[in-house]
């Protein structure tokens, strides 16, 4: 057992995979000399040199395409987006070039690439820098989409993502980078690119979430239990494509209630998908309608007074859960 930050976990995952496979390299803005805008690649330039840890100009569409091309040719690029907001410049290559080529080539050409970086709402940086893209990518066949919460998940899943033969969108969260977690010695054996985990078991309501929202769900579960005697089962979805249907459905069959918490907008969000899955697969087990908690349907405002209204948080999880149990 070891206590490390998510930041270190991500760095270690890249370093270990780069040591293991010379075809793995890191490409992105400020990843080399500056050691990463958020210091995720600390020390990697020093260890692996400038042919494998490469600073790009600010040109997301171009360097993402270069990464995808290199992956088609057999290399294993890790593309770092300073934040996923800027991956919008490159989403064409992520979807049209990376996600679809295996299919279009009848299985001949695959694309082993990882697109990683900060996603979500870091706080006080306004609309263009506060955006959860989970549902955007989870929509697309051909991609795997992962959003870890803990350091163990960050490390284990990033290592698996790098080894995976498909394009993987790896959504990190700036507010989790500095958070410490205990981590076991063999993380890749404890996680999978298609498995959710039950972080806390309960009997009254299932709360699903991913990334930073897991924290809101866990905090809320404590309050629900201590103050209101409500036993919440907290599921960390971890992978959003493919989504771990079995774990969710089994849980709902037990609790009869489900609430999803996410940072993205509600319309066509991950919560919408989960609601549909539950209705299709466990309708008869439901004691009340499935609920969704997400950000307000507005571009995220800068001002603190409005931003906290716009965002999900643990208090809102508590309020919604109580209303579902009428307690």
């Amino acid at each position: 057992m070891n206590d490390i930050t998510v930041r270190t976990a991500l760095r270690d995952a890249m370093a270990e995979e780069m040591r293991a496979n010379p075809n793995v390299f890191l490409l992105g803005e400020e990843v080399a000399s500056y050691n990463g805008a958020y210091k995720i690649s600390q020390g990697l330039l020093e260890e692996f040199g400038a042919t494998r840890v490469i600073d790009t100009p600010i040109t997301e569409h171009g360097f993402t395409g270069i990464g995808v091309g290199a992956a088609m040719a057999g290399l294993r690029p890790i593309i770092e987006f300073m934040t996923f907001n800027f991956a919008m410049q490159a989403i064409d290559h992520i979807v049209n070039s990376a996600a679809k080529t295996l299919y279009m080539s009848g299985g001949k050409i695959n694309c082993p690439i990882v697109f990683r970086g900060a996603n979500g709402i870091p706080g006080s940086v306004a609309a263009q820098h506060s955006h959860c893209f989970a549902s955007w990518y989870a929509h697309c066949p051909g991609l795997k989409v992962v959003a870890p919460y803990s350091a163990l998940e960050a490390k284990g899943l990033l290592k698996l993502a790098i080894r995976d033969d498909n394009p993987v969108v790896f959504l990190e969260h700036e507010m989790l980078y500095g958070k410490r977690f205990e981590i076991q010695t063999s993380p890749t054996e404890l996680v999978a690119l298609d498995k959710a985990v039950i972080l806390r078991s309960g009997t009254d309501i299932t709360i699903t979430s991913f990334s930073i929202s897991v924290q809101y769900a866990l905090d809320a579960a404590d309050v629900l239990y201590d103050k209101y005697g409500i036993s919440a089962e907290v599921i960390n979805l971890i992978t959003l494509r493919p989504i771990d249907k079995e774990t969710i459905i089994e849980s709902v069959k037990k609790t009869g209630r489900i609430l999803n918490v996410e940072e993205g907008w509600m319309s066509c969000g991950i919560g919408s998908e989960i609601t549909a899955l539950v209705i299709e697969n466990a309708f008869d087990y439901l004691d009340c309608e499935p609920m969704r908690l997400s950000s307000a349907e507005v571009p995220v405002p800068y001002s603190k007074s409005l931003e906290c209204l716009a965002q999900a948080n643990s208090e809102k999880v508590v309020i919604l859960s109580r209303s579902m149990l009428q307690k």
Binding site: F86, A126, A127
Partner: peptide, 23 residues
């Protein structure tokens, strides 16, 4: 207060921002 440092505009002066996406 909705835009903050990076997103300032003045319609009166035909000033269109304030853009956070480089380029």
């Amino acid at each position: 207060g909705k835009g903050g440092s990076m997103h300032m505009y003045s319609k009166e002066h035909n000033f269109y921002g304030g853009n956070g996406i480089v380029g």
